[in-house]
Design a protein around this nucleic acid. Structure first.
Lengths: 213, 213, 213, 213
DNA sequence: AATGAATGAGCGTTCATTCAT
DNA sequence: TATGAATGAACGCTCATTCAT
């Protein structure tokens, strides 16, 4: 919801237009993929002229940046809400985070948006940076739980365990996401994930992580 | 390595040209992403004319299909080699599979190629079908190990556990792959994965998987 | 003179550009034939960029449609003017129509444009529909004259006689048209046509038309 | 059935291939029009390679020439057969010629092939020359009949009357030809034509033809 | 007599972008 | 803010043609 050109999107009408643009862009990205995302199609989808689109976003890259920011904000806002009302039990908290993330993979937007983001991150610096930020943010509460459940792990080791858990869950996107073959098994996947990760966090030792074979 | 148009690629020279094309296409896909993959660029990379490229691959989609087939064949061939010399201990076998796959994520080709494939699979039927085939093939030895380690699980449950393990490992691609921030931690990730998955396979009960909360 | 894309050709400049395009297209169609009509050549002829041409006519077919409409409008407008100041004598009116149409065949545009249209009509639905409309319109006054000259003919028979007269005149295009071998004889052709058709309309009986041999 | 490159098409096999080529080309010309006629499509239709096609016809223009020759030969051969068994009555002979030509317009090949030829003749010298030859040949028997029916006409006037009759009949192609709206009325058109032309030939005077208004 | 391989130009079309209004 | 007009490059693709085998 932040655009590039200074002084644009400040009036109420402008803000509405920006929302129309971002929604159009996101729809295209999700339904057709990044390779089919064009300024023209975004303009048509937003029911404005190409000229006007370029008034708000002078270049396609500007639009992409704002689109990524905007899309991620939505996930983040939902994720933050998890915190509220969390009790003090780290194990329970870990369970609820895992549950939330795995079940979120069933969301049709998540299913298609994130693979696009990952592919993009391999070729686009901004997307790459953004990915780092999101997942670092997602790992924060994981790290907190892990530290409390297994205090013997060093800070670095906790980070790696959190990364493992987070990455593992992301990997399920392409298999249990919306419309995917295994979508019906999403609940069981969450169960396996909780069981697997919880056991591991409890039992894992510093040596398990850092041993060299 | 199989081209589309009848009667092309039959001479030695033709076969060489097809290889030049596929290598060029793969390089572009990996270095620049699918959205930048164009017939022109492939032709330039293969040092042939666009006309000649289209002589072998009448449409871009034909090229994409063959490129995916070709690229996946390479992984499959490597994966098949794992089988050879496998001992009878299912736990050891499971360890070696996990180890192989996680470490393969460090391969620069794997790191960038697979996210492209996942994104593609969301919009391209052929890519989707291919993904199903690859991962089904990858899960086969996993399912075999799991069944032998934990005989109490039903066939369906074994499949879900295998899917969980396979998907989890794929998820690490974007984080520990070649050039990624956590690339240095790839060995520890393999350790955590082995520890986590092995424990889970041993301990998990049918009820753990199918319980409804 | 009506373009396709909404919101284009609305400013004075846009309308001028559309005229430049149509003139360029018509010139190429007439001088080189439909098989040589390309968007690029039209753009060069109109001294605009290909991109701008496609801004007005998103597809070649859109341009062709408008070109046909536009070209036919010109003939129609001239043809309508015939009506004005027509006296009440059906025979005289018939003479003047025949004279007008046959002499119009000497027009260089008519000579080359109509054969293209006929060939096009065999493969293009829109051209076919348009042909039907033009010639139905041309036959209207013919049918009126014939009915008044020979009231014994049924409505259907009048239509067939009118069709015969109209079609016969069109057939001369390829022989007495501009630049054709017999172009010098166009006046005599008109004479023969008038004599032939007038006699026939006066003398023909319902039986002559519908007899089965 | 005559090709361009010296020494080709001399073996039995070569002659068969040439026939396959010409049939393929004619089918495409008739079904899709000249603008869609390409060497590639002809080769596919003839089930030979492009290279082999170009062995027989080094250039597209060579193929076109032979195609026109070949197609017109077919009509000519049929037309010559008319002569056989013709009695001495010029009026009867004229009727039979008119009848033959008008009814031939119902032939699907004639319907689509000739408009293509006319359009082509406007831009291609060879097609133009060929048209002259065919129609001059067609007018010969017409001129013979006219001279005998109406001996007062000069040689030049006879030629013009014959041209008028021939051209008139060609004009019906686009209206009563195969698949055309008025195809059902083809018999009545022949009746009207015979009545109209016969009357005219009998009654017309040198003054009718050459008068200047 | 026939094929497969290759080229280079041109095709219709889409694109990001610029700019005057 | 917003539109319509315009550009120039690139896209996937088809084409006529050449040539080695």
């Amino acid at each position: 919801m932040r655009n590039i050109r200074k002084g644009t999107g400040e009036s109420r009408r402008g803000k509405e237009t920006i929302l129309l643009i971002l929604n159009s862009a996101k729809t295209i990205l999700i339904e057709q993929g990044y390779s089919k995302l064009s300024m023209r199609k975004v303009a048509v989808g937003a029911e404005i002229s190409v000229g006007n689109l370029q008034y708000y976003y002078p270049s396609k890259n500007d639009l992409l940046k704002d689109l990524l920011d905007h899309s991620i904000d939505e996930f983040m806002n939902e994720f933050e809400r998890l915190r509220v009302g969390v009790n003090n039990d780290p194990e329970l908290h870990l369970r609820s985070i895992i549950n939330f993330i795995v079940l979120d993979l069933g969301n049709p937007t998540t299913t298609t948006f994130y693979p696009e983001l990952w592919a993009l991150a391999n070729h686009d610096e901004y997307a790459d940076k953004l990915m780092d930020q999101i997942y670092a943010r997602v790992r924060l509460p994981l790290e907190d739980c892990i530290t409390r459940i297994n205090p013997k792990l060093s800070v670095e080791q906790v980070k790696k365990v959190a990364l493992f858990i987070s990455a593992s869950m992301e990997g399920m996107t392409m298999f249990v996401g919306n419309g995917k073959v295994w979508n019906d098994s999403i609940k069981q996947m969450a169960n396996i994930a909780i069981m697997s990760f919880l056991q591991m966090v409890k039992k894992i030792t510093p040596e398990d992580i850092d041993k060299v074979l």
